[in-house]
Amino acid sequence: MTPHDLDALGALTRDYAAFQTRKSGLATALGGLMAVALAVGSLSPLFMGARLGHRLLLEYLVWTPLLWLLLKEFLARALYRGAGAVKALPDGAYERRRWFWIFGLAMFLLAVGLTGLYAFARGLLQAHAPRGCVPAPPLWLLAMPPVYLLAMPWAIRGIEEARVYAVLVGQSVLWFLPFFLFYFAAPTPPLKTGWGLFGDLLGVSILVLWYLVMIWGALAMVRGWKEHRDFRRLLGTLP
């Protein structure tokens, strides 16, 4: 056994361990697909008010990030731990970056949750008439930001997963937050006066975000598939 063989053995172990902590393979591709599906679904002009059975479609869509967390765990167990579990060596810089993502997402969710609560409280306190243009949002939706938040530290293993989760959570809250703003706190009457420059800026921002999500989703699908192919190749090199 030469030093070269030993180095190769170490590298193989590190690569395999990466799939149990940092790389997600097909889970990344699935996240990209879900992000694109959410973005495409949002194109429907009736999306916000669309119904599935007796419930708003939105009430199902807000579970997308949590569904992805479950599926990614299932994929990890089914596909990437078949040859045994390997825990990667700790990497301080990487862990700091992971916590940076988790903290950033936590701050975002806090802001979204508080905005939703503010909209609800403002509607109640100022006795604004609920808007007729959107259906009444179920109040349990306000509990989603803390639920997303609580699931994070345990379920997010790497930065790649944090990115996917951030995109899915970001999209989910982007679709349900306007319900609270429109229904409980929209300035009256917004439809006659319009929102002026603010409305235009908001529209352009959402359009830019929409394109970014579509591009990111497509790239995530390619990257995830490539990682999965690399893993299959890696498994093939094991004796």
Binding site: M1, L6, L9, G10, A11, L12, T13, R14, Y16, A17, A83, G84, A85, V86, K87, A88, L89, P90, L238, P239
Partner: peptide, 25 residues
């Protein structure tokens, strides 16, 4: 050689399951 391979694999990770050690060695 077998022990050298085992130690090399263990040095590249924080913890390694028996099954993986068996597969790789």
């Amino acid at each position: 050689p077998a022990r050298l391979a085992i130690l090399t694999v263990l040095a590249a990770a924080e913890a390694v399951e028996f099954l993986f050690l068996q597969r790789i060695t």
